[in-house]
Structures are given as C-alpha cells and as structure tokens.
Amino acid sequence: MSRENKKKKFDKGYFQKHPCLDPFTCRVCGRSVVPEGAGTDHRNHCPYCLSSLHVDETPGDRRSKCHGVMDPIAVWVRKNNEWALIHRCRICGKLSSNRIAADDHPMKLMALALRPFAGEGFSREGLARMSRHMDVRDEGRP
C-alpha cells in the first residue's frame, strides 16, 4: 500500500484537505464518471442525473453513516451569481447545497429551475387579480 493510499484510508480528515480524484459509477443512472471536465476538483454529483450520495456531514469529512442517494431538488443563485444545486437525502432528508460543475447536463438544470412554474403553484387568476389591484387608477384626482 502506497503512502498516499494509507493516508486516504487512515487519515480521518484527508478529503477535507485533498480533492477526491477517483472515478466513480453513479448509483442512480449507472454511468461512469471521471473527475476531468468538471472545472473543479470537487465533483460531488453525477453530471448526467445530478444525483449525489450522502457520505459527508460537512464537506469532505466522510463521517455520514447514512450513504443514501441524494436527489437534486432545486437550484438557487448564490451571492456571486453562480448556480448551486440543493440535494436532499432520500433516507434521512438532509439538505445540502453544492456548486454546479462545468459539464452538468444543462437541460436537467433548466428542468429543475422550471419546476415551480410547471405546476399549479402560481395561480393565474391570483396573479391577474394582483396585477389589476396594483394598477391603481387615480380617480379622485382632478
């Protein structure tokens, strides 16, 4: 066992200090994912189905005992105008926010962003009523 592999195995905080550059197979869609092309050293979700695994409690500590699949549920815009994905663990419901990578599937990301508009969440009648009420006519004025 080389020195680096030994460190990876026994040093508890190894991945907090070093990026994990191992290729992996996505547990949801089964595609193999390589670290190249992400634009970042910290690839934490599959670029095709955007799913992740619940292995960390805080980034890189590998302390979680849950190991559930984390589904992408939403996107949000961070302060530096960059998108981030919000993942939710299927088993324990933990939420976590992750930066998107350069090669994430753009259609998948767009589908996530459009989800609130797709359902009945914004009622058209409500919006129409609101805009009618906002458009105040000054009838009392001469």
Partner: peptide, 27 residues
Amino acid sequence: LAARPLADPPFPLERIGEMTRLMGGSG
C-alpha cells in the same frame, strides 16, 4: 425566488440545445 435562477443562467439560453448535443446528452 422561482425566477431568480432563470434570470441568471450559467449558460447562454439560446445555445442550450447546442451545448446539450455537444456534451452527448439528451433532452
């Protein structure tokens, strides 16, 4: 909240189809 990601996309929206094809993705 719902519209903020749409207003600030990380990729040009008019090229999203081209990008997806280049990356070998579907959709």
